[in-house]
Design a protein around this nucleic acid. Structure first.
Length: 245
DNA sequence: CCCTGATTCGC
DNA sequence: GCGAATCAGG
């Protein structure tokens, strides 16, 4: 079969459509930049945040944004070496401009009273009851599965993403295991099973400092090459190799 | 101390 | 356009 000249693997990760797609999906879902960055791999959370903003994705409850932008009392970074800094007209909104943020902010309403107790409508009409709060699995890409817990936020806003949504799969099995959302730099990312399986999850143990896996799985991942002729079980090396320090 | 996102600026 | 550095709040 023909090799695809396109899609040449560039060592430098760039924001491909697919990655941007995942970024958007996760960001809108309420995932933190760290988790998104960790999942995408090769990018830091800052990169994710920066890209998200460039994409026009507005961020939600941020700890620091509480203030409206009265003044930039934050001299972030060193001043320009040159220049007479003449206070450039930075987005000066002369008048008006009460831009009503059409951002429902998912996490803005954690206590969402919407999930009202007892639906009167259903009782009156005996119509279809409210959907059960079951964990749903949303696929955001090849190998990227996001689990939404019942207690999570976001109830009524499926912006009809043109993505492939896997119809929720009641998998209480993964609920007890480490999902992709639970992964951090300190969590063992050793995959258990294969992506797509209902019980696919991660090890979840505390990582061996400096490694993406726990001590036990580090031993599995970083095995010395066995002499040829020796049959060895397929080493499930999930992601790129270890980082040299 | 950990986390979070926002912002800015050099590349 | 991208992302590190920095800031700032919880």
């Amino acid at each position: 079969m023909g090799s695809d000249p396109k899609s040449v693997r560039s060592f430098s990760l760039s924001w491909t459509d697919e990655r941007i797609d995942q970024l958007k999906a996760m960001w809108e879902r309420g995932l933190t930049a760290s988790q998104i960055a960790d999942e995408l791999g090769g990018v830091s959370r800052n990169a994710v945040i920066g890209k998200a903003h460039r994409l026009g994705l507005q961020s939600r409850p941020s700890p620091v944004k509480a203030n409206e932008t009265p003044k930039r009392a934050a001299p972030a970074r060193k001043p320009a070496p040159t220049a007479p800094e003449a206070e450039a007209p930075r987005a000066a909104a002369p008048v008006a401009a009460p831009p009503p943020p059409p951002r429902p902010a998912a996490a803005a309403a954690p206590a969402a009273p919407a999930a009202a107790p007892a639906a009167p409508a259903a009782a009156a009409s005996g119509d279809a009851p409210t959907p059960a709060p079951q964990p749903r699995i949303i696929s955001v890409g090849p190998g990227g599965f996001l689990r939404q817990g019942p207690g999570d936020q976001q109830a009524p806003i499926p912006p009809a993403p043109p993505r492939r949504l896997v119809p929720a799969k009641p998998s209480p099995e993964i609920a007890d295991k480490t999902s992709l959302l639970d992964l951090t730099e300190r969590i063992c990312k050793w995959p258990m099973g294969h992506p797509g399986e209902p019980d696919f999850h991660f090890c979840g143990e505390a990582v061996n400092p400096g490694f993406p896996y726990c001590v036990e799985h580090c031993g599995r991942a970083y095995q010395a090459q066995l002499p040829r002729g020796t049959r060895r079980p397929p080493p499930p090396m999930p992601f790129g190799g270890p980082r040299v320090r």
